[in-house]
């Protein structure tokens, strides 16, 4: 098991380093940061590489790792990737985290109204909303032309319906 775990850890570290490297050189090729290529190549490639490593073990030592073990190893790798991607998203878009950063940049002490007005290093709450609306529009969930918002697309309606259902089911009244 330690052997498989080390394969997973090695593939995960390799994928993350490759992703970080691609982010560093993306400017040379004019690839946007959110490009699916930058995210997809290292992580999907990682799945293939990990599968290959487990197959290699099978052919060289003549001991077959059962399919469940290989699926388990891929699942562990994917869990690591989900944590990595979500950690990046949290750093990039974390609402609460940004409030703490704003406070730190103002010597750790500020009036609530000033904090609200200077949110995101001057981005303000309107900037936060516009950024999210642009992302939702890019994802094809709604229409947004910079002044008018909506209506929702079919996928947007499905996401909204799921959010409302889940929030009601869990009795979440005060949300993001």
């Amino acid at each position: 098991m330690i052997e498989i775990f080390s394969y997973v850890a090695m593939t995960f570290c390799g994928s993350v380093l490759l992703h970080r490297g691609l982010l560093s050189i993306r400017g040379c090729f004019r690839i946007p940061e959110q490009s699916k290529l930058i995210l997809g190549v290292p992580f999907i490639g990682g799945i293939g590489f990990l599968w290959y490593l487990l197959e290699l073990h099978f052919t060289e030592v003549f001991y077959a790792w059962p399919l469940t073990i290989r699926v388990g190893a891929i699942a562990l790798y994917l869990a690591g990737i989900v944590v990595y991607v979500e950690l990046r998203a949290l750093l990039s878009r974390g609402y609460s985290l940004r409030i703490v950063i704003d406070l730190l940049e103002c010597n750790g002490h500020l009036d609530i109204q000033q904090l609200k007005g200077n949110y995101g290093g001057g981005l303000s709450l309107s900037g936060l909303l516009v950024k999210r609306l642009k992302t939702l529009s890019d994802l094809g969930l709604l229409r947004f032309d910079g002044r008018k918002v909506g209506p929702l697309t079919l996928a947007g309606k499905a996401c909204a319906a799921f959010a409302v259902f889940a929030r009601n089911l869990l009795r979440l009244e005060r949300v993001g």
């Binding site: 939702l136 229409r143 918002v149 909506g150 209506p151 909204a160 959010a163 949300v175 993001g176």
Partner: peptide, 21 residues
């Protein structure tokens, strides 16, 4: 589900079904 501002926006826009705001 708990903290996403984007989901809150989507849920808000769902109320105004076919209109743009």
């Amino acid at each position: 589900i708990v903290r996403s501002v984007s989901l809150t926006l989507l849920a808000h826009l769902r109320q105004d079904d076919h209109r743009s705001i």
